[in-house]
Every structure is written in C-alpha cells, then in structure tokens.
Design a protein around this nucleic acid. Sequence first.
DNA 1: AAACCGGGGTA
DNA 2: TACCCAGGTTT
Length: 314
Amino acid sequence: MALAPDDETGTAPRVADALHETLLAWFGSHARDLPWRAAGCSPWGVLVSELMLQQTPVARVEPTWRAWMERWPTPRDLAGAPTADVLRAWGRLGYPRRALRLQECARTISRDHAGAVPSTEDALVALPGIGAYTAAAVVAFAYRRRSVVLDTNVRRVLARVMDGAALPAPTLTVAERRRAASLVPDDDARAAAWAGASMELGALVCTARAPHCDVCPVVALCRWRADGYPDDEHAHRRRSQPWTGTDRQARGRIMAELRAADHPIPETELARVWPDHEQRLRALDGLVDDGLLVRESGADADGDLPPTLVSLPR
DNA sequence: AAACCGGGGTA
DNA sequence: TACCCAGGTTT
C-alpha cells in the first residue's frame, strides 16, 4: 500500500519524498550565488528582485538591482524619490509599469506597514504589482516560511516529472495548484528551500526548449523521460507575441527617448523615433493613461499655439 | 479566458 | 526567424 496514490492529490508520497531529498541536495551544491539570496539581503531587497524578475531574466536584472538597492535601500527611500528618477533607474528592464507599481508599493509599505515589508501572503497580495506568485516568493525567500511558489519554471518541472507532459497547460488550473501545494514540504525551512530548488531546476536544467536531462538530478524520477518525451499537447494553442511594429515597441522607443532627455520634449519631436503619426499618438495616450508620462503645454512667447510637451512624471 | 504590457538573448 | 524568459492587471 506504500505506493498507493495519496487520496487528496493522486501523488504517491514516496515519490514526493524522493523528489525532496534529491532536489534539495542538488540545490545545496548548485544554487546560483545571487545577491538577493545573500544572508544579509533585506525583505525589501527580495521584493525588489521579484518585481524586476517578473518577465525579465536574471542576467539583466542583477546589475540594475545592485545599483537600485544602493540608491534606495529601504521602502521609504524609494517612496520619496522623484518618479522620473525611478523610471530612469529602471532603464531597459522592460514593462516600465512595474517600476511605477514598485514605487507605489514602497509608498503603501511606508504608510500602512510602518516601512516594513509584510510577511503574510494576504498582506502582500494587497500591494500594487504583487500577485500570487510574488507574494508566495517573498514569504519563502525573504521570511523563509512555507508557501506555494508556482511560477512558470516550477509548473514546467512538475508537468514533466509528475504528469509526463512536455509543458504545462497554457493557464494555471485549480487542480495544478492543489497538486503543487501537496508537494511543498510541511517544514518552513524545507518548504522555502523547495521553492528555490524547484525554480532553480527549471531555470538551469529543466529548460523549456532544450532540457539538460544528462545532468538532471531527478532524471530517474521523471515521467516525461520514462514515457519517451511525448510532444506538447497544447502546442496548437500557444502563440507567440509579435513585437516589430507593435504599440509596445512604439511605447518602448518613446520611453527610451524620455529617459534620455533632461527636459520636456515637444510631442512632434517624437516623430524622429516613431514616424507613424496615428500609432505614435495612440502609444503616447496609453503612456499618459498609465502614468508613465505627463503632458504639459509649452511656453507661449508670442501668442502662437504652444506646442504640447511631454516628460517623465516628477 | 484573453489581451495588454518590453526587450534582449539564443537556436 | 522564431521562440524563450523568476507575472500582474484589466476587460
């Protein structure tokens, strides 16, 4: 009866134990030495890293994170900074709304939490820019407490090892979350280590395109491998996002121009970086709506119609 | 459930 | 060229 499925989850407890032992041991010797994993890193440092790591790879986040934490070591420091400086420091990490949300986050923490990063998922999820994944990650990595950290890497690892699927379903299901929860060790310290280990395996070994099964510590437990690497069942439903010529690219060009400028710029001058008039206006409107840019009327020296100027918010 | 939101690296 | 990558918010 030892290999009978767990009545709640359909998971054999013995498989879970073997996964834990193997993966935690592997993580002990293969974890990357990242600055937000250092012993002295504050919860705020962990939170900042998680916001930056939403959709941006480690290699590009690391230098920005170091400079950011040196400049604004605490939530109160960031809360008091000019938003223009925050957006410039964010640089080319992408999705600049995250920078705005991070500063809002700092202000809420300063005002409602006495400047201390909350340690519960409920309080964390209530903060701007923090969803289920980031809240769980802060609980695990900043406070070393048990949580269910389920990002795209963990989903892929579990889909392969447990389900024998090439990739997880396009959208996270309730059953998937419940199964992931059942695999998190009960103990706080081991649960936090499990979160790091399962993410790390997905990031370094069990990669989406070309997994490195030759060096995988759990290769012997992997159902996807045992089943002969079946194809992705959901391939027909996945579509990649276009980039060239999109509004997103236009927004990026405009933001880059404004970050580089040290004074307001006439709207018409932005035609230099995005010639299409209609699309430029649409992108500009969106950026203003998002609070990433502000419009102001230009100086009116001689009664002519003043040009509209745009700049980063103060 | 689907759309929107950046940008750089790699096969 | 196509696809990948430590998500969250809005509709």
